[in-house]
C-alpha cells in the first residue's frame, strides 16, 4: 500500500544518488515540485529518463544532478531550446551528459515493455535513421513468424518513477485525467514510485477517461498543491505560458541560472 508522505521526505527516501529516475508528464501534469525537491536534496549521478525533458529537466541538468539523459525530445515547448541541456551536451557544463536517444514511439514502447515485465518491445521504427548508429538500446529483429525486419527497443526499468496526479484518496489510490501521456506505463515499469497530487479527498468519484492507480501498485503519495506548475493540472489550474518564456532568459545564461539555483535553496 502507498504511504502518504511529505514531499521532501518522500523524495529523500525514494530517490538515491546514482538512481535511474523517470519524472513523466506529457505537457500536462509535469511533476515540477518533485523535480525541484530532487535538486534541493542534492542528488547526484542520476540517470534521468523522460520522453520530453523540459524545464524541470533543464533545471536538474544545470544543477548537476544528472550523469545521463534517456529521452526523445528535449526542448522548451513553444519557446525553443533547453539551454542548460545544450550547455551540458555542447560544452560539458556543469558536467558532461551521456545521451541515450530515441524517438517518441521508441520511448513509449520501452516503457510499455518495462510495465509488462518484458525485456524489450518491438516496433516499426528507426529504419534508415542515424539513431541506429548512436543508440545502443535498439537493434534490428526478425519476426519469428513472417521474417519481417522490425526494431527491438530495450525495456525501461527505472529505479523510481515520479508523476503528478489530480488527486488521491486517504488510502493512497490515485486518479488522473485529461492528457495522461505515458505516466501509467512509467509507474508500472519502475521498481518504486512516488505520486504527487493536488489534493487528498475522501472519495474518488469516477471521471470519464481517468487513469486510476490503486494504492497497492504505488510506493508513496505526497500532497503537493500546484506541484505541476508551470505546466497545468486539468480542472485545477492552467499552463503558465509566461514562465516558459521567462525560463528561456534564465536558462540562456550560466550566471542567471546559478542565481536561480541559489534562490531554490531556501
Amino acid at each position: 500500500m502507498a504511504e502518504l508522505v511529505g514531499l521532501a521526505e518522500g523524495i529523500r527516501e525514494l530517490v538515491r544518488d546514482g538512481d535511474t529516475v523517470a519524472l513523466e508528464g506529457f505537457t500536462h501534469l509535469i511533476p515540477v515540485a518533485a523535480g525541484q525537491e530532487i535538486i534541493r536534496a542534492g542528488r547526484r549521478e542520476l540517470e534521468l529518463v523522460r520522453m520530453t525533458p523540459d524545464i524541470v529537466y533543464d533545471q536538474l541538468i544545470g544543477a548537476g544532478c544528472a550523469r545521463k539523459l534517456v529521452f526523445s525530445w528535449g526542448g522548451n515547448p513553444g519557446v525553443g531550446s533547453l539551454h542548460r541541456l545544450r550547455d551540458a551536451v555542447e560544452h560539458g557544463w556543469p558536467a558532461p551528459l551521456e545521451l541515450d536517444e530515441h524517438s517518441h514511439a521508441g520511448m513509449a514502447n520501452r516503457y510499455a515493455a518495462g510495465a509488462a515485465g518484458l525485456p524489450f518491445a518491438v516496433l516499426r521504427g528507426y529504419a534508415g535513421t542515424d539513431l541506429v548508429h548512436h543508440t545502443t538500446t535498439l537493434a534490428p529483429i526478425s519476426c519469428p513468424f513472417t521474417g519481417e525486419r522490425l526494431t527491438a527497443v530495450a525495456a525501461l526499468r527505472p529505479d523510481v518513477a515520479v508523476i503528478h496526479a489530480q488527486r488521491a484518496d486517504r488510502a493512497g489510490n490515485v486518479q488522473l485525467w485529461g492528457i495522461t501521456g505515458v505516466q501509467k506505463e512509467a509507474v508500472f515499469a519502475a521498481r518504486r514510485s512516488l505520486v504527487t497530487v493536488e489534493e487528498v479527498v475522501d472519495v474518488l468519484d469516477p471521471r470519464p477517461g481517468a487513469v486510476v492507480l490503486p494504492s497497492w501498485v504505488l510506493t508513496a503519495v505526497a500532497v503537493a498543491p500546484g506541484g505541476a506548475r508551470p505546466s497545468y493540472a486539468q480542472g485545477y489550474y492552467d499552463r503558465d505560458n509566461a514562465y516558459y518564456q521567462w525560463w528561456d532568459t534564465i536558462s540562456r545564461d550560466r550566471d542567471a541560472f546559478t542565481g536561480w539555483r541559489k534562490g531554490l535553496r531556501q
Binding site: 520530453t52 529521452f71 526523445s72 525530445w73 528535449g74 526542448g75 531550446s81 533547453l82 541541456l85 545544450r86 551536451v89 555542447e90 536517444e101 530515441h102 524517438s103 517518441h104 514511439a105 516496433l123 516499426r124 521504427g125 528507426y126 535513421t129 539513431l131
Partner: peptide
C-alpha cells in the same frame, strides 16, 4: 555537436 537540437520526437515514425 556544434548545435544540439531538440531531437526526434514523433518525427521518424
Amino acid at each position: 555537436p556544434t548545435l544540439r537540437l531538440p531531437g526526434a520526437g514523433g518525427a521518424p515514425e
